[in-house]
Amino acid sequence: MMAYMNPGPHYSVNALALSGPSVDLMHQAVPYPSAPRKQRRERTTFTRSQLEELEALFAKTQYPDVYAREEVALKINLPESRVQVWFKNRRAKCRQQRQQQKQQQQPPGGQAKARPAKRKAGTSPRPSTDVCPDPLGISDSYSPPLPGPSGSPTTAVATVSIWSPASESPLPEAQRAGLVASGPSLTSAPYAMTYAPASAFCSSPSAYGSPSSYFSGLDPYLSPMVPQLGGPALSPLSGPSVGPSLAQSPTSLSGQSYGAYSPVDSLEFKDPTGTWKFTYNPMDPLDYKDQSAWKFQIL
Rank of each mutant, 00 (worst) to 15 (best):
L146Y: 07
T61V: 06
R48K: 09
Q100A: 08
M26N: 01
Q106V: 07
H27K: 07
P170C: 03
S204I: 08
H10G: 01
K88Y: 13
P211L: 13
A156S: 02
R176A: 05
S257C: 06
G151F: 08
Y258G: 04
T251S: 07
N281S: 11
V160Y: 03
G151D: 11
A156W: 13
G151E: 07
Q84L: 11
K102E: 02
L237T: 01
S164V: 15
S213A: 12
A192C: 07
G239W: 12
V131C: 06
Q97A: 11
L74S: 10
P190M: 15
A29E: 01
S22Y: 14
P165E: 01
M2T: 00
P33C: 10
A35S: 07
P135K: 09
R41C: 13
Q103Y: 06
Y214S: 01
G183T: 08
P197E: 07
L171F: 10
H10V: 15
A3W: 14
Q297T: 12
P135I: 08
L179K: 07
S223E: 01
F201T: 00
L78Q: 04
K75T: 12
M2N: 00
S124N: 07
A15R: 08
M283Y: 08
G274D: 00
R95I: 11
C132A: 04
Q96Y: 06
T47V: 11
Y195E: 00
A156P: 04
K120R: 03
A192K: 10
S128T: 07
G137R: 09
C132Y: 00
M5Q: 00
A181T: 07
R43A: 14
L136F: 05
S241C: 10
P133T: 06
V180N: 01
Q104V: 08
P144R: 05
Y214N: 01
P285C: 05
S262W: 07
T61D: 05
Q291S: 08
S12N: 02
M193Q: 00
S12F: 12
N14R: 13
L146A: 03
P184G: 08
S182I: 15
P31Q: 08
L237P: 02
P145M: 05
Q39W: 15
L218W: 09
S19E: 01
A121E: 01
G230L: 12
Y221M: 03
R176D: 03
P147S: 03
L16T: 00
S252G: 01
S257N: 04
Q62D: 07
S213K: 08
S199E: 03
A196T: 05
S262V: 11
P147Q: 09
P282A: 03
L51N: 14
N14I: 12
S210V: 14
Q28S: 05
A260S: 08
R119V: 03
Y191W: 15
D140P: 10
W163K: 02
K102C: 04
F269M: 00
A17D: 00
Y32E: 01
E53I: 03
K38V: 11
K88T: 12
D140T: 04
Q248C: 11
S141G: 06
R69A: 13
Y261D: 02
C132R: 08
Y195H: 00
A121S: 07
S188I: 13
R91W: 14
G20K: 11
P31A: 08
L25C: 01
S128P: 10
E71A: 10
S245F: 13
